[in-house]
């Protein structure tokens, strides 16, 4: 069974069809990229998956469970992890505490009022930090991290929830090219070793073609292509959408 199965997803804003019947599936350990030109409906689609927006129609299933329209909080508890386009971490906590916080939330341990949190899940947090290569920064304040480090921290926070599905919104936005590759390779490794399904949106085509197992292309709210990197590269409709303007202005 697919980790995530989307069927006939629809959403319109004030009469404008932003997403018009999109369907796809993501498998265990798979990295699936969702791409499309600006205004294609990527963000809307993504925000319906992560619970930020309620769909008008269609269904979203996580494993066997229907999760259509559930709020982000509920999704998190069902094993959906997230990273944000603009990183969202807890600025008043250290790097380790950020991860400990996520672990506490995951283990339903937050409604406790007396035992100091500093000792809770400390080892597990350190293990996670080690996996993303941030062990030596555990004591630093999250508020002062470099952007690339923040992105990695977000990944560790998401991992603390032991997700089956990881939704990454523009994971490499704002990063230097070298960092981008490193981050996506990290994600790739996690997908493979933890059998996590990863769905991400991305602008950088090098990242997309370099890391995704499969690619979905969205245009004007509809899915116009789906397939491997090579298949997408070769797809004429995709070329038209992406290179359309280039083809006409710089053409024959």
């Amino acid at each position: 069974m697919s980790i995530l199965a989307v069927n006939g997803l629809r959403k319109s804003f004030g009469g404008v069809q932003a997403v018009a019947g999109v369907g796809f599936a993501v498998e265990e350990g798979e990295m699936l990229a969702l791409i499309g030109p600006n205004g294609a409906g990527k963000s809307t689609c993504f925000n319906m998956l992560n619970g930020q927006i309620r769909p008008d129609g269609g269904s979203i299933r996580l494993g066997a469970t229907d999760i259509t329209g559930l709020p982000p909080r509920r999704l998190a508890r069902m094993g959906v992890g997230r990273t944000f386009q603009i990183t969202a971490t807890f600025a008043s906590m250290t790097v380790r505490e950020n991860v400990q916080m996520a672990l506490l939330a995951h283990h339903r341990g937050i409604w406790r009022f007396l035992r100091p949190a500093a000792a809770e899940h400390r080892d597990e947090a350190d293990r996670l930090l080690a996996r993303i290569g941030m062990a030596e920064q555990a004591e630093r304040a999250a508020g002062i991290l470099a952007y690339g480090d923040l992105k990695r921290l977000e990944l560790a926070i998401a991992l603390a929830g032991q997700p089956r599905l990881l939704l990454m919104d523009e994971p490499t936005a704002g990063m230097a090219p070298a960092e981008r590759v490193a981050l996506m390779q990290l994600a790739r490794g996690l997908a493979t070793s933890e059998r996590i399904a990863i769905l991400f949106t991305e602008h950088d085509m090098d990242v997309v073609f370099g890391t995704a197992d499969r690619i979905l292309v969205l245009n004007r709210g509809e899915l116009i292509a789906e397939g491997s990197a090579d298949a997408i590269r070769a797809n004429p409709r995709v070329r038209e959408v992406y290179l359309g303007s280039g083809a006409t202005t710089g053409g024959h």
Binding site: N50, P72, G81, A88, T89, F90, I110, W111, A117, G161
Partner: peptide
């Protein structure tokens, strides 16, 4: 305690707090 951390988490970033449940 964990509660205090969670409270601060919700203040620091409502988005992230929701996303970890």
């Amino acid at each position: 305690a964990p509660f205090g951390y969670a409270l601060r988490a919700a203040r620091d970033s409502a988005l992230r707090a929701e996303a970890i449940g």
